[in-house]
Design a protein around this nucleic acid. Structure first.
Length: 424
DNA sequence: TCTGGGGTCCTAGGACCC
DNA sequence: TCTGGGGTCCTAGGACCC
């Protein structure tokens, strides 16, 4: 099933063909690309052990020590003390990712980007395009190599098969499941390999004696319904290797959020309030950058004991500005937080976007409110562009200064609420 | 060993309406 | 006066993915 020799004659492919392209240890690979001295060494991208960080990605050299994604940084440090640690440079990863996604779109417009490091491609042979899917996969793998990173590719007749196949031989694997061999390939695999089955579903399926994908394919309807609800028949079709869903080229954003775990739990309203303001401001910026305005505000609070609560409410009209939801955010947190209770994490999110553009202030709103809103809007744009040019620390409102840990001094400026900019 | 952050989707229960 | 039930919307929580 593994094929990497371009001169081999390939069996005919008269069926849908889906590729899943998965970038290998992506963040760590980009770091090794940019730091040649780190190549061949264990590299871990993630947060600090002393501030509750976790591993985002690690190089294959680090995986040999048992380090894994999402592992607490403290544990990873014990397993691999000699690892090179680095914080993520998300902008750089996005840049490399964009270059790779562009390369994939040169092969076909039918690309579904699943995440920064994964995409499905529909390369089904047609009358116009008769090229063999495996040839396309080989060319993509070479092109990605050329950019200095590597990928594993799964080729199959459905997204579920392509996804599982891409995982079978990492890194730099090319695993092909030919049409007609779907059941043989999937049948013996453990249920957990199927995307959509996590620890909870696995446990419940095991209680019904369902351990493999062939068990799942033959399982009792009622059992599947009790585990998957309305998705029961979809999951069965996936397990059978039947067509599950088409490659979707576009997906609208449904929510924008920002959350933060604190190095040490917060216990005072002053600290919580300052954090909520910072989070709300960051959400506002993201909304404006994405040209989205929403009406649902959600806050999330996780206590020191890991107990987590969320509260949501509706705004009277869609907004892309924190000034319109900061008060609600604080009010909602007050409804779940009791004085003195340690807070580990806070989150703020906006959802329910109807039109793409923020709504104009109503013509019937009073003039003062209108001017206020327009001023906020102008101020927001000015602030956003300064931060885009000079970085997140370039501009701070008075109320944000309380919660800052570091300011650059030379470039730091304060913008007052009336819109004046003054050096700190 | 002490558990991130950004998302999507589903479910159950209650409110409300007809 | 007491009763049913369907539909829809909203909220909170949780599973899951990368």
């Amino acid at each position: 099933m593994n094929d990497s020799n371009a001169s081999v004659v390939l069996p005919a492919w008269h069926a849908p063909a889906i590729l899943l392209v998965d970038l290998d240890a992506f963040f760590a690979s980009v770091e090794q690309l940019d730091h040649p001295e780190w190549r061949g060494k264990p590299v871990i991208v993630g947060g600090d052990a002393d501030s509750r960080g976790v591993v985002a990605t690690c190089s294959y050299e680090a995986r040999r020590f048992g380090v894994r994604s999402a592992m607490p940084a403290a544990q990873a440090q014990r397993l691999c003390p000699q690892a090179i640690w680095t914080h993520g440079r998300h902008a750089r990863y996005s840049e490399v990712s964009r270059a790779i996604m562009a390369l994939l779109r040169d092969e076909t417009p039918l690309v579904e980007q699943v995440s920064i490091d994964e995409a499905f491609l529909d390369v089904s042979p047609t009358r116009v395009n008769t090229e063999h899917p495996v040839r396309i996969a080989q060319r993509i793998q070479d092109a990605v190599d050329g950019l200095g990173v590597s990928c594993s590719i799964g080729v199959g007749t459905s997204k579920a098969i392509a996804k599982i196949a891409s995982d079978m031989d990492k890194p730099h694997g090319l695993t092909v499941v030919y049409p007609g061999s779907e059941r043989t390939f999937l049948g013996p695999l453990p249920i957990r390999t199927l995307s959509g089955i996590g620890p909870a579903a696995e446990k419940r399926l095991m209680r019904f004696g369902i351990a493999t994908l062939s068990d799942l394919a033959e399982a009792d309807e009622g059992a599947l319904r009790s585990v998957f609800g309305k998705n029961a028949s979809l999951m069965r079709r996936r397990a059978l290797g039947e067509n599950d869903s088409a490659v979707q080229t576009e997906r609208a954003t449904k929510s924008v959020s920002k959350e933060m775990t604190f190095a040490r739990d917060l216990t005072t309203w002053d600290d919580i309030h300052a954090a909520l303001r910072t989070l709300s401001t960051q959400v506002g910026r993201r909304l404006r950058r994405a040209h989205l305005a929403g009406t649902t505000v959600t806050v999330k609070v996780r206590y020191g004991n890991w107990e987590t609560h969320s509260v949501q409410t509706q705004l009277p009209r869609p907004t892309d500005h924190e000034a319109d939801f900061i008060e609600e955010v604080c009010r909602m947190v007050r409804t779940v937080w009791n004085e003195g209770v340690p807070v580990r994490l806070l989150g703020v999110g906006i959802s329910r976007f109807e039109g793409a553009e923020p709504q104009q202030t109503s013509l019937f709103a009073d003039e003062h409110a209108h001017q206020q809103s327009a001023r906020w809007h102008d101020l927001a744009s000015a602030t956003d562009s300064l931060k885009d040019r000079f970085g997140e620390d370039a501009v701070r409102f008075g109320h944000e200064l309380r919660s800052t840990t570091k300011t650059t001094g030379t470039q730091s400026k304060t913008i007052t609420n009336s819109g004046e900019i003054s050096p700190n």
